[in-house]
Write a protein that binds this DNA or RNA. Structure first.
Length: 135
DNA sequence: GCCAACGTTGGC
DNA sequence: GCCAACGTTGGC
């Protein structure tokens, strides 16, 4: 089981939109590093759902229900999508500010590669986030 | 609105 | 194949 973090601008696609749809095809990723991460995702992997730009906080948890397949919105068939379903909305969203202030997250991809839209999360980091999101 | 980080493009 | 110029993303 691996853990991930996926970013979305809430103006474009928010957590509420995601819940309303019940399922999401994560399309539009046009970055090679992000693509590699998507291709490494397995069914059942968990992903933190982050609101970039507006909010700048991790708002909930999603689960991979379908592994990578070609992105129907792309000209080039090498771009891929993954399907997610919502698992849980966090009672206490974890803000980027909190994460940056906490030494346990200093090596986190979210902090070090701020522009990466789909990044890995270490099991320890995932556990800490889950604690912050629920206490 | 600015700027840093990063990716892409195009001239050489 | 290098690198400068430019565009985009995302935090502040």
């Amino acid at each position: 089981m691996n853990y991930w973090l996926i970013k979305s601008e809430p103006d474009t696609y928010s957590w509420d939109d995601f819940v309303k749809e019940g399922k999401s095809m994560w399309d539009g990723v046009r970055n090679h590093t992000a693509r590699l991460n998507m291709m490494a995702m397995k069914e059942g992997d968990l992903a933190l759902f982050y609101h970039s730009n507006e909010g700048k906080e991790i708002v909930g948890l999603a689960k991979v229900v379908k592994e990578h397949y070609p992105d129907p919105t792309a000209d080039d068939p090498r771009w891929v999508v993954v399907n997610f379903v919502p698992v849980e909305k966090f009672p206490k969203p974890v803000t980027l500010k909190q994460i940056k202030a906490d030494k346990r997250f200093e090596d986190m991809a979210l902090v070090r590669l701020s522009r990466l839209s789909v990044g890995p999360v270490k099991p320890m980091e995932f556990d800490f986030i889950m604690q912050l999101a629920h206490d």
